[in-house]
Each structure stands twice: as structure tokens, then as C-alpha cells.
């Protein structure tokens, strides 16, 4: 009976065992990269909407306060997507014949909601409350980015758990005075280290990192 394995099989076996470690490792790296890529996290990917609403125009250009539309943000867990009535406060007269705004007028006529595509979508097992973050001095921009420079809405941050924890572990790196929470172009007057440390004490900000804080 002849040999089943050629002598080179010895080398192939050694190399393949060694190679398998790199292959498995490489697979993990790729998986990790994919998981953090905009393809999965949607960071920086502008979404299509029934009406191409521009925060850049409304916030940056006209200077409308966040709360004019997101009225519930200071008192509720959800910031609130405004009802069509809010759009029509101005657009009953401005751009009142624009074909781009027909879905808004149709919604107002028929009393059917405009179905916006949700941009910031936390998983269902995460508890989140806007109002408490504002009261503790977390600016809109800190999480949502400079929306006043976004023609179409996209996610500035991943909303991954590690991203949440980055601030929950060291809030002094991000908090700002309460009066500045809604400011788009806020720059700390002194170093963030000094301001942050002072505000953490003043607002009694605790480092909430227990699992049950968000996963309740």
C-alpha cells in the first residue's frame, strides 16, 4: 500500500494550525470593524425622509430654538417629534405652495401623521431619558452633534454602549452649564477640566455605571 500523505503534508499541517489562529483572529477583527462601521452604526449616514427637512436651515439659518419643535425634551424621556401643526405655524404662509412641502400640507388636511424615518434609535432594552440629561448639563450637541450644520439629519455618534459609558464614567469631560445646554456653538470659557469638575459637584452628578441604570 502506497503512502496516503506526501511528506509535504507535515508542513501543510503545521502551517494550517498556525494559520488558523490568524484566520480566526482576522475574522474577529473584520467582524469588529464591520460592527463599528457606518454600515451598522449609521454614523454620518443621512436618512431619506418624506420631506427633506433641514436642521441647518431652521436652526443654523433662522435660529429657531430646539424646544420650539421638540417641546417635551425638558420634561419627558422623549424629546418629541413635532406634530404637523407646528410645521404649519410658519408654513401656512411661508413656502405655502412649495411642492416639497406637499406631504406636510397633506398631513394637515387629512390628519394623518407624517411618517418620518427615525434617525436615533436606541435598542428596546435601553432606558433613556432626555430631561435628566439636560438638567445635569449634557448639551444637545454633545450627543446629536452640530445639527445646525446638518442639511439632512444623521447620527453623529454610534449610541453604542461604550459610547454611553465614556461619559457615564467621566461626566466631567462633557458637562456644561445648564444655561448653555441648547447652545449650538458653546465653547467652555475656561478649561473643560475645571468647569467639568465644578459642575459635577454643583449638579450632584453621580457616575452611574450600574447595569440596571439603563437596562432596567
Amino acid at each position: 500500500m502506497s503512502q496516503i500523505f506526501h511528506p509535504s503534508a507535515n508542513t501543510i499541517a503545521k502551517v494550517s494550525i498556525f494559520g488558523a489562529i490568524f484566520f480566526a483572529g482576522g475574522l474577529l477583527v473584520i467582524l469588529n470593524e464591520v460592527n463599528r462601521s457606518p454600515y451598522v452604526t449609521r454614523v454620518g449616514v443621512a436618512r431619506e425622509q418624506p420631506v427633506p427637512f433641514s436642521h441647518k436651515h431652521h436652526v443654523g439659518g433662522i435660529g429657531i430654538d430646539c424646544r420650539y419643535c421638540h417641546t417635551a425634551v425638558e420634561t419627558s424621556s422623549a424629546a418629541g417629534i413635532p406634530p404637523t401643526e407646528t410645521c404649519m405655524s410658519c408654513h401656512s404662509q411661508i413656502w405655502a405652495d412649495s411642492p416639497m412641502l406637499e406631504p406636510v400640507r397633506a398631513s394637515f388636511r387629512t390628519d394623518r401623521s407624517i411618517e418620518w424615518t427615525r434617525v436615533h434609535d436606541l435598542p428596546g432594552f435601553v432606558y433613556f431619558d432626555h430631561s435628566i440629561h439636560l438638567k445635569k448639563g449634557v448639551g444637545c450637541v454633545t450627543c446629536h452633534g452640530r445639527v445646525d450644520q446638518m442639511p439632512l439629519m444623521y447620527q453623529q455618534n454610534t449610541l453604542n454602549m461604550e459610547w454611553c459609558l465614556d461619559c457615564h464614567r467621566a461626566p466631567e469631560k462633557y458637562v456644561r452649564p445648564r444655561e448653555e445646554v441648547f447652545r449650538m456653538d458653546y465653547r467652555p470659557q475656561e478649561s473643560q477640566q475645571v468647569i467639568g469638575a465644578r459642575l459635577v459637584k454643583e449638579y450632584k452628578i453621580r457616575k452611574l455605571t450600574d447595569c440596571s441604570v439603563c437596562h432596567r
Binding site: G80, P123, G124, F125
Partner: peptide, 13 residues
């Protein structure tokens, strides 16, 4: 499933 549990969220459809 746990990302999108079968419950209503505010302003959902």
C-alpha cells in the same frame, strides 16, 4: 427581538 420588542414606543406607528 430584544432590540425591537413587541411593545409600543412613544410616537410609533
Amino acid at each position: 427581538d430584544m432590540h425591537d420588542p413587541p411593545r409600543y414606543r412613544a410616537q410609533g406607528s
